[in-house]
């Protein structure tokens, strides 16, 4: 997608890919044939720049034909450079300005609870994004309103545009921060499918608190030359790089 677009964010998309696969194909209740189904779980991509991984999941699930993936970021495409709910079937919310998704997810979780719904609300955040103050406003509110139907996931790949997260603006101790805001915290390897699945099951059992899954991930996961390279945050591969990356990813899925 990013190769065809000539721009985009492969690094943070690859780091979330395993989480997204488990969510869309093993955890969430949803129906691609009926995207507005009232009884669906909701997913919000707060780190909007990782939309290639969301679009890939939605296309794979059947929300729209896969041929659209080649139009990502092109004029008149249904796949905008950052997600837009009015353009893409299956996209619950527009995002791209960082730090806003958790508030939307919290409002949604609150509304669902008011109506006696037992549906789940998931929100995927980047680690760099946690530097936004609004995230912590939302974290405080979700703890305060006891939104146990809300599950946040932090894609903790430890890289942002200007370098390592710890060097740019440190987050540690991250788990303690969430606990202090009255959240359950589950720490996992974000590329271990079993651990991811178990974490979501455990999150679903929370009685009074929202849950955050802190997923340790590798930016650019699965592509040797992209892994742990901040430079691959917002840069698309050229043809040669693309061929190499696809070959490596294909070997991994076999």
């Amino acid at each position: 997608m990013t190769y065809k677009a000539g721009s985009g964010h492969p690094g943070g998309s690859l780091s979330s890919a395993d989480i997204m696969a488990v969510l869309y194909f093993g955890v969430m209740k949803h129906d691609p044939k009926n995207p507005k189904w009232e009884k669906r779980d909701r997913f919000f991509l707060s780190k909007g720049h990782a939309c290639p991984v969301l679009y890939a999941a939605l296309a794979e699930a059947g929300y729209f034909p896969k041929k659209h993936l080649a139009t990502f970021r092109h004029l008149n495409s249904i796949l905008q450079g950052h997600p837009h709910r009015l353009k893409t079937s299956g996209v619950e919310m527009s995002s791209g300005s960082l730090g806003q998704g958790l508030s939307i997810a919290a409002g949604m979780a609150l509304g669902l609870k008011m109506d006696g719904n037992r549906l789940k609300v998931f929100c995927l955040m980047g680690d760099g994004e946690l530097q936004e103050g609004q995230i912590w406003e939302a974290a405080m509110a979700a703890g305060h309103f006891k939104l146990n139907n809300l599950v946040g996931i932090v894609d903790y790949n430890n890289l942002q545009i200007d370098g390592s997260v710890e060097k740019v603006m440190g987050l540690a101790p991250l788990a303690d921060k969430w606990r202090a805001f009255r959240w359950n915290v589950i720490e996992i390897d974000g590329h271990d499918v079993l651990q991811i699945k178990k974490a979501f099951i455990k999150a679903g059992q929370s009685k009074t608190k929202p849950t955050v899954i802190i997923a340790r991930t590798v930016k650019g996961k699965g592509v040797s030359f992209m892994e742990n390279q901040a430079g691959w945050h917002g840069r698309a591969p050229n043809k040669e790089e693309y061929m190499k990356a696809i070959a490596e990813l294909n070997r991994r899925t076999v």
């Binding site: 909701r42 619950e92 919310m93 730090g99 806003q100 998704g101 958790l102 508030s103 939307i104 997810a105 919290a106 409002g107 949604m108 979780a109 609150l110 509304g111 669902l112 008011m114 109506d115 103050g133 609004q134 406003e137 939302a138 405080m140 509110a141 305060h144 309103f145």
Partner: peptide, 24 residues
């Protein structure tokens, strides 16, 4: 049906957005 979000306007707007997505 009333929510005091505290002194956190940015979150208040986002939560209102989320509530509207549930039909409120």
């Amino acid at each position: 049906r009333f929510f005091d979000i505290g002194i956190a306007e940015q979150n208040m707007l986002g939560m209102a957005g989320g509530l509207s997505l549930t039909g409120k």
